[in-house]
Amino acid sequence: MPHSIDLKNVDLDYYIYSVRAQSLRNAVFNLAVGGRMYKTAGDVAAVQALSNITFRVEEGDRIALVGHNGSGKTTLLKVIAGIYQPTRGDLTIDGDVTSMIAISAGLDMEATGLQNIHKLGMMRRLSRKTIESRLEAIAEFSELGDFLRLPVRTYSAGMLARLMFSVATEFDADILVLDEWLSAGDAAFMAKASARMAKIVDAAKIVVIASHDFDLIHKVCNRVCELKAGKIVFLGSLTEWIAYREAA
């Protein structure tokens, strides 16, 4: 079965509770950052984070989501990952989605690195045996050594990134949804990580990645979707996007 992601006129509203909607409204209305904010009843503010998003991703596509901070990249990733359901519009996904959205997602801070590898594998519905067989490879790639026997709460941000990335990329995925948290590792690890990334991106059927990193996009992706204030302002191939950027 060919894998695909299909979004039709997808809108997503965030409802933010217990914010004084009125006082905030004027302040936020015309900012370059973020979606459109509007007032709803009572003490609830709504932010339209995505508006009328329509695109189709076919098997073999590696699509990059680009745009300013707060333009809706992560929100769109979360919609594709099934975490948020569209407020309006249709979303059809064929295939199993693996998402790496937040760096500490699903980590148990009190447990050791090794226990967390098990837990993360379990959350991806892998059998104990599969996890066990990859444990060594994960430990080796992360270069965390004996630190894997310490509770994760003692780790630095970079070490967490190493652990998460190593686990997340050890197992194959149909549809891979990645946010740009990767950059927490140091330079040596980043070099290693981008090589590994190229490998798993090759193995995945579809990759959706949010990034500001032009080099990464250039190396990994064949399509680009640029968002601005929750709307698509550009959707096309990588070469078209480069031309578009130069023209702008």
Binding site: A81, I83, S99, A105, G106
Partner: peptide, 8 residues
Amino acid sequence: GGLMQTQR
């Protein structure tokens, strides 16, 4: 909450 916001 952490899990709900990162995994379906």
